[in-house]
Design a protein around this nucleic acid. Structure first.
Lengths: 110, 110
DNA sequence: CGAATCCATTGACGTTCGTCAATGGGTCTG
DNA sequence: CAGACCCATTGACGAACGTCAATGGATTCG
C-alpha cells in the first residue's frame, strides 16, 4: 500500500459529493435500520409477500408490545413502512414508493 | 392491496432467516454509518484512491479534531476502516478484507 | 533542545435511544 | 351491553451517543 506524500500544515480536504440534505436523509434511514429488532422487522417486511400483522411481530420477538409499537413508529417516521388497519389488526408493509437508493440499501442487508 | 385473512388469537410469527450473530453484526455496521459525519467519511474513503489523512477530515467538517478522532474510532471498532501511521500523520482507508455483504451496503449508499 | 504539528484519550454535558408499565381507544364476539 | 383482543401513546429510567475542552504522546523542523 502506498501512502500519499504530505507537507506539514497543508491539508487536502476530500470533496464531498452528496448534498447535505441527501446525507441527512440517508443517515435517518440507517438510524432506523441500526437496531437489531428493527433490522429484522425491515428484512421480514422486505421478504414478505403480504402485509404483516403487528401481532405476528409481537409474538416473534422477546420484547413487550409497546416496544414493538415504538419500533414500528420509528420505521414509519423514516418513511420505510406503511400501515393499513383492518378490523382489529394493523398490517405493515414496505412503503411502495421507496426511492431506488433506499431500496438498494434494503437489498444489501443480506 | 390484499390483506391476509386472520383469526382472533392466532398469530403467524414470520420466520427470521438471518442468524442472531449476523443480525447483531449488521446492525453494528449500520450504527457506525448512521451518523451524518461518519457517513460522509465512509463514503469518501470508499471513493478514495489513496488512504486519507485525518487532518483532511478535520479540515473538511465543522467539528473539532477530537470529535473527528472519536468518529474514526467508531468506524475502527466496527471494523470498517484501518489506520496506518506514517510520521506525523494517520492515514485511513476502508478495511481491505470487508465481507461482501458489508461492501454491498457501502456501495448502496449512493 | 525548543517549538510546532498531528492525533488519541479522557472527562464532562446535554440529547437521543431502547425498554417497560400503565393507560386508553377501537373492534369484534357472545 | 360486557368482555376479550389488538394496538398506540404516555411517562419514566438507565444506557448510549455526539460534541467539546483539556491534556498528553509522538514526530518533525529549525
Amino acid at each position: 500500500m502506498v501512502l500519499p506524500e504530505r507537507e506539514r500544515g497543508v491539508c487536502c480536504p476530500p470533496t464531498i459529493k452528496a448534498r447535505p440534505e441527501k446525507v441527512e436523509q440517508t443517515s435517518e434511514i440507517l438510524r432506523a435500520l441500526a437496531d437489531p429488532t428493527r433490522l429484522q422487522i425491515a428484512m421480514a417486511l422486505r421478504d414478505a409477500q403480504e402485509p404483516v400483522c403487528i401481532c405476528d411481530f409481537t409474538a416473534t420477538f422477546d420484547i413487550s408490545q409497546p416496544t414493538v409499537s415504538h419500533h414500528m413508529a420509528k420505521l414509519r417516521e423514516a418513511g420505510l413502512v406503511e400501515v393499513t388497519k383492518r378490523g382489529i389488526w394493523s398490517f405493515y408493509r414496505l412503503a411502495p414508493d421507496l426511492p431506488p437508493a433506499t431500496r438498494r440499501i434494503l437489498q444489501a442487508l443480506g
